[in-house]
Simulated assay, not measured.
Amino acid sequence: MNIDKRQLVMEWYELYYEDIYRFILFMIGDKQCCEDFVHDTFVRAYTAYDRFDHRSSIKTWLFSIAKHLVLDEIRKRKRNRFISFDREISSSFNLEQYIENKESVNQLFTAIQKLKPNYRLVIILKKVEECSTKEIARILDWSEAKVRKTLSRALQSLRKKNAIEGGEHVEQTL
């Protein structure tokens, strides 16, 4: 089977660009660096293609690559950044249906940016990217139990910060 690796990665780029971009944007909150990280994700997928064992989906594998890039960047920065949320790329959900006030949206995403990186990862993958617990476990190389426990702690941390009024509604907001 002769696979044109370049063509295949270009197809993945077309299919998953928005998902990877949104994930990276929410993780690091820096639009200017985001394009570079998305590009690097697909370059790494191209160079590592021969080592991809197909135990997970392509999307899961790409998220895993992006996760490593993002965590490296977070470690380099050693400080939190804040994002101003705007609807640059549409998501699979409509935040405006859940939150009428843009200020509330900004408060929520600012609060997410203040969380520990692992908390950010699980909240974004589960609530924004709508990955299953099993997919998140593969992306993060964790057990499904650890994913559930970390998500619970992350949501609890958001509630404690009173990031949005009525913190008990965090899950409904996301």
Rank of each mutant, 00 (worst) to 15 (best):
Q7L: 13
Q7Y: 01
V9Y: 00
L15A: 11
Y16M: 03
E18D: 15
D19M: 04
Y21Q: 02
Y21C: 03
I24Q: 04
K31E: 15
K31H: 10
Q32Y: 14
C34V: 07
C34N: 15
R44H: 09
A45V: 05
Y49E: 13
R51A: 15
F52K: 04
H54V: 09
H54Y: 12
H54A: 12
I58C: 09
L62Y: 02
F63P: 11
K67G: 00
K67V: 02
V70C: 14
D72P: 02
R77E: 12
R81Y: 14
R81I: 02
S84I: 14
F85Y: 15
F85D: 01
D86M: 06
R87H: 08
I89H: 13
S90F: 10
S91N: 09
S91Y: 10
N94C: 11
I99K: 04
N101K: 11
K102Q: 13
L108D: 02
Y119M: 06
I123G: 00
L125S: 02
K126A: 10
K126I: 01
K127W: 11
R138D: 11
L140S: 06
E144T: 12
A145N: 12
K146P: 05
T150D: 07
S152Q: 15
L155I: 15
Q156L: 14
R159C: 05
E165M: 07
V170M: 07
